[in-house]
């Protein structure tokens, strides 16, 4: 055609073939920045942790041991083991060293290392929250998309008010109601699900029957958490799709003669998914935090139940360990969300 290519200032550069090999440099820089930010957050969490458990209580051994030590020798031994008799900066270094080598102390109640305890209790929590997140994300996104696309329609009105209601509800109360209705049974109706726990006493966890038994035990808690998360995701997806609906590129897509459904799925949803993915990944970081009450209500031996049990004692080091893991989970999820966002959004990636 007529126009000399070089006339347009951008075109000359355009002649270079696009970077095709490896991940573009832009993403590497972006990712490095995010990793550095996460490390800084981790440092902050460690400081808070130290502050909460060793500075705030004044005399940690007395406050948090609460009547546990009958003799002064026991108290001294406790203090010495954890270096609580040293000056604060020294204590912080000891704390740092111990934490980074995975030494989180010994549980006062179970008398085993806290790190072992946490490792054991991690899996039920991951299973519970992972499954619930998966279901909630899939259903929530579906609901959000359809509600936003027909804004003000019946589905939108029902799902938005239902979401708001669930959002205003303590999820563990929902769990209590479900147990009352479906596990204990109402009137003549028998209970369909177990009232709690991860498996029946006589079940063999390695057999198929055992796996099904666990699934049966997890049904209600997963359902409870799914509902709780679902409300969140449906609202987020709805509002980010609504943000896209007025955009010009959707008019372009429509003008091209695409069906409404194709306009929605191929153009609007991928853009609206960007913020939603971030929220889902971020929320997954609150895995421990979110499981605390639901695990308590359904007596599932995960990290959450571990925390509430430790609360009764109070099991000083277990609480600290759970707090650390809970915060670290958020940071990791945060990082994952950012990295994912970068991968999904070409404006960041390239």
């Amino acid at each position: 055609m007529s126009l000399p290519a070089a006339a347009d200032p951008g075109v000359g550069a355009a002649l270079e073939p696009p970077a095709a090999t490896g991940r573009p440099r832009g993403y590497g820089r972006y990712a490095l920045g995010k990793v550095a930010g996460s490390l800084a957050s981790l440092g902050f969490v460690l400081v808070v942790n130290f502050f909460l458990f060793r500075v705030l209580p004044g005399d940690p051994a007395r406050t948090l041991g609460r009547g546990r030590f009958t003799t002064d020798e026991q108290l001294d031994a406790f203090n010495e083991t954890y270096g609580l008799d040293q000056p604060l900066p020294q204590q912080f270094l000891t704390f740092l060293g111990n934490t980074l080598t995975g030494d989180l102390g010994v549980s006062l109640r179970y008398r085993v290392p806290v790190s072992e305890l946490i490792w054991d209790r991690l899996w039920p929590t991951l299973m519970l929250v992972g499954t619930a997140t998966l279901f909630a994300a899939l259903i929530g996104i579906w609901l959000g998309v359809h509600a936003a696309w027909r804004r003000g329609g019946p589905l939108d009105r029902i799902s938005t008010s239902a979401s708001l209601t669930v959002y205003s509800m303590p999820e563990w109360w929902l769990g209590l109601l479900l147990i009352a209705a479906l596990s204990v049974g109402i009137g003549p109706l028998p209970g369909l699900f177990p009232t709690g726990g991860l498996r029946s006493v006589d079940a063999d966890p390695s057999s198929l029957a055992g796996v099904l038994d666990t699934a049966w035990h997890l049904t209600l808690p997963v359902f409870t958490l799914t509902l709780a998360y679902l409300a969140d995701y449906a609202l987020v997806m709805r509002s980010s799709l609504l943000d896209e609906i007025g955009e010009d590129y959707l008019t372009t897509a429509r003008a091209k003669g695409l069906r409404d459904k194709v306009v929605r799925n191929r153009h609007a949803v991928p853009n609206a998914l960007l913020p939603t993915t971030t929220v889902v990944a971020l929320n997954f970081g609150f895995v421990v935090a979110g499981a605390i009450t639901v695990e308590t209500v359904f007596s599932i031996p995960g990290l959450g139940l571990l925390a509430t049990e430790a609360l009764e004692v109070p099991d000083y080091w277990v609480l600290q360990g759970v707090f650390l893991v809970a915060s670290a989970a958020v940071i990791v999820a945060n990082l994952a969300a950012n990295l994912l966002y970068g991968l999904l959004d070409p404006r960041v990636r390239t």
């Binding site: 955009e247 010009d248 590129y249 008019t251 372009t252 897509a253 003008a255 091209k256 153009h267 991928p270 853009n271 960007l274 999904l344 959004d345 070409p346 404006r347």
Partner: peptide
Amino acid sequence: SIVFQGAQHSLNPVR
């Protein structure tokens, strides 16, 4: 077909 006012926003940013 239409060439829209403002091509900034008329193209889908993620495709």
